[in-house]
């Protein structure tokens, strides 16, 4: 990765580094012709596997499993696309104008245009540019991902206090990490938190795009992906 972080003494950050899932690799169907349909089919299958990994990962976010099942569901149903988009943005930091959708699959602007993902490509590039400018490192990325999950603003949360406490714990971890490794910039954690609105905006654009793909019905979509999209409608 472009910006490698440093060893941290913060237990939450080091735990999040430890439980960070490995890369997901695209498995394009060789029986399909190389087309926008194959790109989208590959992408939707990849997202389904990423969703599975994201749910598994969430259980390891410190404090998440202590929430009620209803609140765990509310956070994931609301924030799953933000988590996926942040992962894609982080993987794409080293690329120029391409989206690293999988460990072995990067989509250029033209491929995105042909597949109906042009708006999403533009939105993601803006987000990636912001993280690149900030030199987001791996430690910051894993904490931001957990914060995106905890900061879902779902209206279905039962125990608001418990979710706020999870947010506080992650915020403390970020501040702790920044004071340890970026003491030269006392505003750094604030700058990173200020990227969250653009992350949500980009994730909303992604949800809109895949809801449209679902409506068109040309691409097979797995059950989990469909269920999570339906939760956003």
């Amino acid at each position: 990765h472009v910006f490698s972080g440093k060893k941290t003494t913060n237990k939450v950050v080091s735990h999040l580094i430890l439980v960070e899932p490995g890369e997901v690799f695209a498995t394009p169907d060789p029986s399909l012709p190389d087309s926008d349909l194959r790109t989208l089919t590959t992408l939707c299958e990849l997202i389904n596997r990423e969703l599975l990994m994201t749910i598994g990962w969430a259980k390891h976010v410190p404090g998440f499993s202590a929430l009620s099942l209803v609140d765990q569901m509310a956070l994931l149903q609301s924030a799953w696309m933000e988590v996926l988009v942040l992962g894609m943005a982080y993987r794409s930091l080293a690329l120029s104008d391409e989206l690293a959708v999988g460990g072995n699959l990067a989509l250029c602007r033209e491929q995105c245009r042909r597949s109906g993902l042009l708006h999403l490509h533009a939105a993601l590039l803006q987000l990636i540019g912001k993280f690149r400018k900030a030199k987001l490192d791996r430690e910051e990325f894993v904490v931001m991902k957990a914060m995106a999950l905890a900061n879902s603003d779902s209206t279905h949360i039962e125990n608001t206090e418990a979710v706020l406490s999870l947010q506080d714990r992650l915020h403390e971890a970020l501040q702790d990490y920044e004071s340890e490794h970026h003491a030269e910039d006392p505003h750094r954690s604030g700058k990173l938190l200020m990227t969250l609105p653009l992350l949500r905006q980009t994730a909303n654009e992604a949800v809109r795009t895949f809801c449209q793909i679902r409506l068109e019905g040309r691409i097979p979509m797995h059950k989990l992906f469909l269920e999570m999209l339906e939760a956003k409608i």
Binding site: L52, G56, M73, L224, E227
Partner: peptide
Amino acid sequence: TERHKILHRLLQEGSPSDI
């Protein structure tokens, strides 16, 4: 939870079989 049965099951049991 009926509408969100896969997520519910994955969180509760962690057994992906028909995803």
